[in-house]
Every structure is written in C-alpha cells, then in structure tokens.
Design a protein around this nucleic acid. Sequence first.
DNA 1: CGATGTATTGACTCTGTTCAAGATATGTGG
DNA 2: CCACATATCTTGAACAGAGTCAATACATCG
Lengths: 235, 235
Amino acid sequence: MRPQDIATLASHCARCGARDRSICSAIEDEDLNHLAVHSQHIDVAAGQCFIEQDELARDFFVVTEGHAKLFTLMSDGRRQVNGFAGQGQFLGLAANERYAFSAEALTPLKLCRFSHDGMRLLTAQFPTLEQRLLSEASNELVAAQGRMLLLGRKTARERLASFLIERGAGCHQATTIELPMTRTDIADYLGLTIETVSRTLNALRRDGLIDIDHITRIHLRNRHAIAALASGEAA
Amino acid sequence: MRPQDIATLASHCARCGARDRSICSAIEDEDLNHLAVHSQHIDVAAGQCFIEQDELARDFFVVTEGHAKLFTLMSDGRRQVNGFAGQGQFLGLAANERYAFSAEALTPLKLCRFSHDGMRLLTAQFPTLEQRLLSEASNELVAAQGRMLLLGRKTARERLASFLIERGAGCHQATTIELPMTRTDIADYLGLTIETVSRTLNALRRDGLIDIDHITRIHLRNRHAIAALASGEAA
DNA sequence: CGATGTATTGACTCTGTTCAAGATATGTGG
DNA sequence: CCACATATCTTGAACAGAGTCAATACATCG
C-alpha cells in the first residue's frame, strides 16, 4: 500500500467517521502505518465481481470509493440482493469459513482489502478495533431485522417507500436521491419484480409523493408521508 | 447467582459448546466465578415477554433452558418473527442504543442475564470472549442473509421445507422434529399466514415428504427431497 | 364433559407475477 | 451529429400464488 493510498483511506474514513460508519474510525492517525502493513488498495471495474459466494473467506474489505451490491443466488437464478455498500462500508462480516454472499461493483470501485490474518494482528494490537467490528456487526444485525420485516410483511408500496427513506437517510435536507443501481437490483433488493418496482414508483409519482427527475435521480416531495408509508401507518 | 446456577449454566454451555454455539464456551471453568459476579439467573413463564422492542438495551441473555421467539412488530399489528432461540443461544447482539426486537418465552424459560457494563468488564478480562461474540454475530449475519433469500424469493412450499431442514439440523439421524411454537409463530417467521402454513404442511404430507405425528411433532420421511425443495432444486 | 383456544379446510379475492409489446436511454460507428 | 443497435425501463392484459373471510374440526384443560 502506497503512502498516497493511506492518505486517501484516512481522508475517506475521516469523512465516514463523522457518521460513525467506517471501521477505520477506530484507528488513530498515528496507527495508520500499522494499518498500511496489513491492507491493500484495489480497483474494481463496474460490473466486476470481487467476492464470490461460497468461496473461502480470506479477506475483509472497506469501500473507499464507489458503490457495490451484495447478493445471494439460487441455483435456478433467483437472486436476493442483501444490501448495497457505499463509501466507508465494511464488507465481509457475514462469513464463517466461506462468504455467504457475492459482491459486485455497481460503479468503478476502490476498495481497501484486509486479510483475516492481518486483521487478527491488528485487533490484537488495537483492542478498540474489535469493539468497532462488533458494533458494526450489531448495526448490520439491526438492519437485517428491519429487512426481514420488509420482506416478510410489507406491501410493494411500503417496500419502495422504505427503500427511498433508507436511501435518503443521512441527507437531512437534500431530498434528492441518487440511485447507482438498476431497477433489477432494486427489485431483487425488495423481493419484487422490475415491473412492480416501475409501476409502484410511478404510482408514488402520480400521488405527488415523489418526482422522478431521471431514472437514477428521485426527489422526495413529501418525505413525512413517505416515512409514514414506510412504517405502515397509511390507509 | 447461586453456585448451582453456575453449575447449571456451565453444564448447559458445555453441551452447547460441543456444537460451538454457546457464548460461554469461550470461558474456561476456572473463570466461571468471574462470570458469576456479572450474571444473574432468571426464570420466565411461558408467554411472558422479557425483551421489549425499542426499550433501552441494558442486558445480554443466554438461554439455558427452554425456547423463546424474537420478533418485530408494526404499529398495525403485523408481526415478523426474526428467529427462535433454544438452549445455549445468545440474545441481544441485534441492538444499538435500544433493542431492535421483542422476545417472548414459548415454554418455561431459564435465562442467564449479563449487563452490558458487566460484559465490558468480562471482555476486558477475557479477550477470547469478544472474539466469541464477533463470531456469534457473524453466524447470525450469515443466517440473516439466508432468511432474506427465503423471505424475498422462495415459494411457500420452499419456505416450509427450509424451515423443516433448519429445525432438523444438528440431529443427524433423528428425523423427528419438535416444534415448540404455534402455527402463527411459524407463519410470522416465514412471512406467510397460518392458513398457508397449514395447507402447505398438509400438501407435503400428502406428497409423502413428511408425517405429522402430532401438531408439534413432524417426521421427515424424505429428508433429501425436502432439502432439495428448500434450496429450490425442484420442479 | 363442555369450554376455549388453536388448527384445518373451503370458497373467493387480490396483490403482485408473468408474458408481451412499446418507449426511453445509452452507446457506437459512420 | 445523427442513425442504428442494444440495454433498460414502462405499460398493458391475463394469470396465479398466497391472502382473506368463514365454517368446521381438533386439542387442551378445567
């Protein structure tokens, strides 16, 4: 890992750290040299797979730039997208011996890779890092339970509303959302078909809840109503 | 915590530890005294709630006897059962400031309770414990992804087959499954209605895949076929 | 044994899927 | 810069799997 990569990672993680999302926020600046020894910077082209379901889980990853999708496949091609990962997101906790999911770049992607072995050395050196990992895992478990509720019990309309609110979270004022994924990815994320996603989004537009500025850009006109829909408090 | 409770916990955890499922397997016998200082034995009557969704998350729990269900509620009463917990199971990782789920005893239940504060002291003393917690969280994340696939993409028949296989796991030979939960719980676990659960189980019986000895006892006649169904390799 | 809660079965409905056609983007080469 | 080719997205019509509502059967427990 070159010095400029460390700087890049550090600056990215500093940004993410503000929202307490990045794993790197557990590591102080002066410790970044140790980090550098055990990590490696990687570029992935859009559409390329960098984690393969059922492969031996040797590495963890941190997204430093771009977006990725995580998904599970069935033998007949049915697909469930488990999540999307953006800047600062940590990947690879959902694995024992082998990865439980595949991961593919949605946009040109920059990753920081840590071997499990390297990670063990790091956690031995920085106990806070292990706490940080555990807290990250807890966050993901909470999110997973929210998604089970969505997939098991919510209507198509509620699923889309939940998706929009989730995507819009963090941006307190900016109610315009960028969607780096296709309709197919959204459908597989929400347990629906592309047709239902398309129809439902346009229904939300007709009802004045959103504007669809562009296929990849959606404006929330009535965030409060969308949030109510998402949590099931609607007629 | 009384000495006999420690013994009970230890013996239970020893049993579970064989399958590497219990959190206590990280703690050696001679350390159980330290454990005792920070833990508390609790009895819960069947039907009683012992974790309340959105309450401040102050404690972790280990099930030492009996069965519990974990679930999430929507304001209109829709319910998603996130999982069932039996002997040796660790509860409470899916929480940040507050619990992301509620938990209720299905049978008379014995729990071991650890305060978060006590847990911090314990993990400081036994670094392996924190690794154990992280590994437990990883297992749960893997399981969560399996459930997302189930809830998002599987048919009712495949969901029931998956449920039976999951319940039958561990018991390599014994193909008779005890179900400590009601049909309503199963339905809310699989994202279905009780009617669909009932109809589908009886369809599986008619097709010679299972016997329903009793409402709460199911015998797997053709485990291989059920497993194939569960993973979606069927007509 | 009757009372109550739980499970099964049946008839009908509805939400979301499937299949198919058309529209809109994105990208390429002339 | 435009025409064509390909992807992706939208829209429509028919269908199906699971849900809803309602009646009946079965357990469990006093």
